[in-house]
Protein backbone atom coordinates (compact mmCIF):
# COMPACT_ATOMS: atom_id res chain seq x y z
CA UNK A 1 0.00 0.00 0.00
CA UNK A 2 1.34 3.43 -0.96
CA UNK A 3 1.65 6.39 1.43
CA UNK A 4 1.98 4.39 4.63
CA UNK A 5 3.72 6.28 7.44
CA UNK A 6 7.22 5.04 8.28
CA UNK A 7 7.44 5.68 12.02
CA UNK A 8 10.82 6.85 13.28
CA UNK A 9 12.53 4.87 16.02
CA UNK A 10 14.12 6.79 18.85
CA UNK A 11 17.36 4.89 19.50
CA UNK A 12 18.84 6.66 22.50
CA UNK A 13 17.91 9.58 24.74
CA UNK A 14 20.53 10.81 27.25
CA UNK A 15 21.00 13.67 29.68
CA UNK A 16 24.35 15.28 30.41
CA UNK A 17 23.60 17.55 33.38
CA UNK A 18 27.08 19.03 33.98
CA UNK A 19 29.36 18.47 31.01
CA UNK A 20 32.92 19.78 30.97
CA UNK A 21 33.51 23.08 29.23
CA UNK A 22 35.42 21.33 26.44
CA UNK A 23 32.44 19.12 25.63
CA UNK A 24 30.06 22.08 25.81
CA UNK A 25 32.20 24.01 23.35
CA UNK A 26 32.73 21.03 21.05
CA UNK A 27 28.97 20.69 20.57
CA UNK A 28 28.44 24.39 20.00
CA UNK A 29 27.04 25.25 23.42
CA UNK A 30 27.92 28.48 25.22
CA UNK A 31 29.33 27.67 28.69
CA UNK A 32 28.15 31.03 30.01
CA UNK A 33 24.52 30.21 29.18
CA UNK A 34 24.34 26.43 29.03
CA UNK A 35 25.12 24.05 31.85
CA UNK A 36 23.16 21.01 30.75
CA UNK A 37 22.92 18.99 27.57
CA UNK A 38 20.35 16.54 26.25
CA UNK A 39 21.25 14.11 23.45
CA UNK A 40 19.09 12.04 21.15
CA UNK A 41 19.71 9.65 18.27
CA UNK A 42 17.03 8.47 15.86
CA UNK A 43 16.84 6.52 12.61
CA UNK A 44 15.23 9.43 10.69
CA UNK A 45 17.23 12.62 10.44
CA UNK A 46 14.59 14.94 9.01
CA UNK A 47 11.91 13.91 11.49
CA UNK A 48 14.43 14.66 14.22
CA UNK A 49 15.28 18.12 12.86
CA UNK A 50 11.57 18.88 12.97
CA UNK A 51 11.25 17.42 16.49
CA UNK A 52 14.24 19.45 17.74
CA UNK A 53 12.59 22.59 16.40
CA UNK A 54 9.31 21.57 18.01
CA UNK A 55 11.10 21.23 21.37
CA UNK A 56 12.23 24.86 21.25
CA UNK A 57 8.55 25.75 21.46
CA UNK A 58 8.03 23.61 24.57
CA UNK A 59 11.05 24.30 26.72
CA UNK A 60 13.64 27.00 27.27
CA UNK A 61 16.33 25.17 25.28
CA UNK A 62 18.66 25.84 22.40
CA UNK A 63 19.45 23.30 19.69
CA UNK A 64 23.23 23.55 19.63
CA UNK A 65 24.11 20.54 17.47
CA UNK A 66 22.25 18.45 14.91
CA UNK A 67 24.09 16.55 12.17
CA UNK A 68 23.03 13.72 9.88
CA UNK A 69 25.30 10.68 9.54
CA UNK A 70 26.80 9.63 6.23
CA UNK A 71 24.71 7.33 4.03
CA UNK A 72 21.84 7.23 6.49
CA UNK A 73 20.46 4.75 8.98
CA UNK A 74 21.14 1.79 6.64
CA UNK A 75 24.88 2.22 7.17
CA UNK A 76 24.80 3.20 10.84
CA UNK A 77 28.00 2.83 12.85
CA UNK A 78 26.18 1.09 15.69
CA UNK A 79 22.78 0.05 16.93
CA UNK A 80 22.28 3.39 18.74
CA UNK A 81 23.65 5.62 15.98
CA UNK A 82 20.77 5.76 13.53
CA UNK A 83 20.93 8.67 11.15
CA UNK A 84 21.34 11.73 13.37
CA UNK A 85 22.63 13.04 16.66
CA UNK A 86 20.74 16.02 18.05
CA UNK A 87 21.98 17.97 21.08
CA UNK A 88 19.93 20.48 23.04
CA UNK A 89 21.40 22.78 25.70
CA UNK A 90 19.89 24.72 28.57
CA UNK A 91 20.82 26.36 31.83
CA UNK A 92 18.42 24.19 33.78
CA UNK A 93 18.32 20.38 33.75
CA UNK A 94 14.54 20.53 34.04
CA UNK A 95 14.37 22.32 30.72
CA UNK A 96 16.48 19.56 29.18
CA UNK A 97 14.03 16.96 30.49
CA UNK A 98 11.08 18.91 29.14
CA UNK A 99 12.80 19.42 25.80
CA UNK A 100 13.65 15.72 25.43
CA UNK A 101 10.05 14.80 26.25
CA UNK A 102 8.83 17.17 23.53
CA UNK A 103 11.27 15.69 20.98
CA UNK A 104 10.21 12.12 21.72
CA UNK A 105 6.53 13.09 21.66
CA UNK A 106 6.94 14.71 18.22
CA UNK A 107 8.90 11.74 16.84
CA UNK A 108 6.44 9.18 18.14
CA UNK A 109 3.23 10.74 16.93
CA UNK A 110 3.91 13.52 14.44
CA UNK A 111 6.92 13.84 12.17
CA UNK A 112 7.65 10.80 9.97
CA UNK A 113 8.57 9.72 6.45
CA UNK A 114 5.94 8.18 4.18
CA UNK A 115 6.42 5.37 1.66
CA UNK A 116 5.78 6.61 -1.88
CA UNK A 117 5.59 3.13 -3.37
CA UNK A 118 3.90 -0.09 -2.31
CA UNK A 119 6.75 -1.58 -0.28
CA UNK A 120 7.74 1.76 1.29
CA UNK A 121 11.24 1.65 -0.19
CA UNK A 122 10.86 5.19 -1.57
CA UNK A 123 10.85 7.25 1.62
CA UNK A 124 9.47 10.78 1.30
CA UNK A 125 9.27 13.46 3.99
CA UNK A 126 6.47 15.90 3.05
CA UNK A 127 6.19 17.69 6.40
CA UNK A 128 4.36 20.98 6.92
CA UNK A 129 5.45 23.05 9.94
CA UNK A 130 2.65 25.52 10.59
CA UNK A 131 4.69 27.56 13.07
CA UNK A 132 8.49 27.41 13.16
CA UNK A 133 10.40 27.32 16.43
CA UNK A 134 13.58 29.31 16.90
CA UNK A 135 15.89 26.54 15.70
CA UNK A 136 14.71 25.88 12.13
CA UNK A 137 13.62 29.50 11.67
CA UNK A 138 17.22 30.56 12.29
CA UNK A 139 18.55 27.80 10.02
CA UNK A 140 16.15 28.85 7.26
CA UNK A 141 16.53 32.59 7.76
CA UNK A 142 12.82 32.92 8.52
CA UNK A 143 11.06 34.32 11.57
CA UNK A 144 9.81 32.10 14.39
CA UNK A 145 6.12 31.43 13.75
CA UNK A 146 6.47 31.35 9.94
CA UNK A 147 5.16 28.41 7.89
CA UNK A 148 7.51 26.03 6.18
CA UNK A 149 7.15 22.94 4.02
CA UNK A 150 10.01 20.57 4.80
CA UNK A 151 10.30 18.34 1.73
CA UNK A 152 12.82 15.48 1.39
CA UNK A 153 13.01 12.50 -0.95
CA UNK A 154 15.66 10.39 -2.76
CA UNK A 155 17.56 12.42 -5.42
CA UNK A 156 15.55 11.61 -8.55
CA UNK A 157 12.14 11.84 -6.88
CA UNK A 158 13.11 15.02 -4.98
CA UNK A 159 14.44 16.78 -8.08
CA UNK A 160 11.22 16.18 -10.00
CA UNK A 161 8.95 16.79 -7.00
CA UNK A 162 10.46 20.04 -5.72
CA UNK A 163 9.76 21.62 -9.08
CA UNK A 164 6.20 20.32 -8.98
CA UNK A 165 5.81 21.73 -5.49
CA UNK A 166 7.10 25.17 -6.45
CA UNK A 167 4.71 25.23 -9.41
CA UNK A 168 1.72 23.99 -7.42
CA UNK A 169 1.38 26.88 -4.99
CA UNK A 170 2.48 30.39 -4.16
CA UNK A 171 5.61 29.35 -2.26
CA UNK A 172 9.25 30.27 -2.53
CA UNK A 173 12.32 28.12 -1.99
CA UNK A 174 14.22 29.06 1.16
CA UNK A 175 16.87 26.41 0.70
CA UNK A 176 17.36 23.62 -1.80
CA UNK A 177 19.40 20.60 -0.81
CA UNK A 178 20.80 19.25 -4.06
CA UNK A 179 22.29 15.76 -3.86
CA UNK A 180 24.45 14.39 -2.45
CA UNK A 181 23.67 15.27 1.13
CA UNK A 182 25.03 13.27 4.08
CA UNK A 183 22.24 10.73 3.78
CA UNK A 184 22.14 10.94 -0.06
CA UNK A 185 18.63 12.35 -0.02
CA UNK A 186 17.66 15.68 -1.57
CA UNK A 187 14.95 18.21 -0.96
CA UNK A 188 13.89 21.74 -0.25
CA UNK A 189 12.53 24.09 2.36
CA UNK A 190 9.67 26.16 1.00
CA UNK A 191 7.80 28.97 2.69
CA UNK A 192 4.55 30.77 2.04
CA UNK A 193 1.12 30.88 3.65
CA UNK A 194 -0.05 27.76 5.47
CA UNK A 195 -2.43 26.81 2.64
CA UNK A 196 0.32 27.26 0.07
CA UNK A 197 2.80 25.18 2.09
CA UNK A 198 0.25 22.40 2.47
CA UNK A 199 -0.58 22.38 -1.23
CA UNK A 200 3.13 22.37 -2.11
CA UNK A 201 3.86 19.49 0.25
CA UNK A 202 1.09 17.35 -1.20
CA UNK A 203 2.16 18.18 -4.75
CA UNK A 204 5.68 17.09 -3.76
CA UNK A 205 4.43 13.81 -2.34
CA UNK A 206 2.18 13.13 -5.32
CA UNK A 207 5.03 13.82 -7.75
CA UNK A 208 7.22 11.33 -5.86
CA UNK A 209 4.49 8.71 -6.20
CA UNK A 210 4.28 9.39 -9.96
CA UNK A 211 8.04 9.11 -10.44
CA UNK A 212 8.02 5.84 -8.46
CA UNK A 213 5.21 4.46 -10.65
CA UNK A 214 6.97 5.37 -13.93
CA UNK A 215 10.71 5.47 -13.33
CA UNK A 216 11.72 5.18 -17.03
CA UNK A 217 10.42 8.01 -19.18
CA UNK A 218 12.20 6.54 -22.23
CA UNK A 219 10.11 3.38 -22.26
Amino acid sequence: MKLEPITPTVLSVQRLPAPTEAVLRAYGADPSRHTSLGLITCDQDDSTYVALDEATKHANIDVVFARSFYAGAGSASGPLSGEILGVIAADNPDDIDEGLRAIVRCLEHDACFYGANDDGSIAVFPHVISSLGHYLSAEAGLAPGDCMAYLIAPPMEASMAMDAALKAADVRAVKIFAPPTETNFAGAWLTGSLDACEAAAMAFLEACVRVGEAPRHDR
Binding site: L3, E4, P5, H109
Partner: peptide, 22 residues
Protein backbone atom coordinates in the same frame (compact mmCIF):
# COMPACT_ATOMS: atom_id res chain seq x y z
CA UNK B 1 -0.58 15.76 12.88
CA UNK B 2 -1.60 18.10 10.07
CA UNK B 3 0.79 16.40 7.63
CA UNK B 4 -0.78 13.02 8.40
CA UNK B 5 -4.27 14.41 7.65
CA UNK B 6 -3.02 15.81 4.36
CA UNK B 7 -1.46 12.47 3.40
CA UNK B 8 -4.71 10.68 4.24
CA UNK B 9 -6.55 13.11 1.95
CA UNK B 10 -4.00 12.55 -0.83
CA UNK B 11 -4.43 8.78 -0.50
CA UNK B 12 -8.17 9.16 -1.01
CA UNK B 13 -7.55 11.48 -3.97
CA UNK B 14 -5.22 8.92 -5.56
CA UNK B 15 -7.98 6.33 -5.27
CA UNK B 16 -6.71 4.21 -2.42
CA UNK B 17 -9.62 2.64 -0.55
CA UNK B 18 -8.05 1.61 2.75
CA UNK B 19 -7.76 4.45 5.26
CA UNK B 20 -4.46 5.45 6.78
CA UNK B 21 -3.70 3.45 9.94
CA UNK B 22 -4.52 5.38 13.11
Amino acid sequence: MRTRQLVAQLRADLGMAAPLPP
